[in-house]
């Protein structure tokens, strides 16, 4: 997000509880930084690269953060017009009974929170992880991002 868009978001949403607005702004920033590119640049079609201009439209992102009551997931929806945020809504989407029920099954085995280490430093010969995606998939994701960028 550009600084302009973010501060506009805060202004437009001034009537909403400050907590939710701050959470939303942080969320957008952190998603762009830590997620893989395919995940960060979710688009209906949005792009989170800094600079440049954004196509008018409504953009939605979900993200999680730790709250005193446990893990919360929120959905932030921004409406952009001429590079300015004209509407913001922040919704809590944690209250998904299915997700909660599934999660309850998994709690027992939890050991702690992971700390990633650089693969280069680990002396491993192989990596187990998500498949690399095919060129076709990557090209399609790129095309969607290009469409979204005005």
């Amino acid at each position: 997000m550009t600084p302009t868009a973010r501060s506009s978001a805060a202004r437009t949403a001034a009537l909403r509880p400050a907590f939710a607005v701050l959470a939303g702004a942080t969320l957008l920033g952190s998603l762009a930084g830590c997620a893989s590119s395919a995940q960060a640049d979710q688009s209906t079609g949005g792009t989170t690269s800094s600079g440049g201009s954004y196509k008018d439209g409504t953009y939605t992102k979900n993200g999680s953060y730790a709250s005193p009551g446990g893990q919360e997931t929120i959905s932030v929806q921004l409406t952009l017009k001429s590079n300015v945020v004209t509407a913001v809504t922040v919704k809590t989407v944690t209250a998904d009974p299915t997700a909660t029920a599934y999660e309850a099954r998994f709690i027992s085995g939890i050991q702690g929170v992971v700390v990633g280490k650089k693969l280069d430093a680990l002396n491993v010969s192989r990596v187990a992880g998500s498949s690399l995606t095919s060129q076709g998939f990557n090209a399609a994701v790129e095309a969607i991002k290009a469409d979204a960028k005005a």
Binding site: V114, K117, L119, R126, G129
Partner: peptide, 16 residues
């Protein structure tokens, strides 16, 4: 074989 467990958010890192 020593296998790195790829961090789901960062393919340059491992969680174990």
């Amino acid at each position: 074989v020593r296998v790195g467990l790829e961090h789901p958010w960062d393919p340059t890192m491992a969680i174990g």
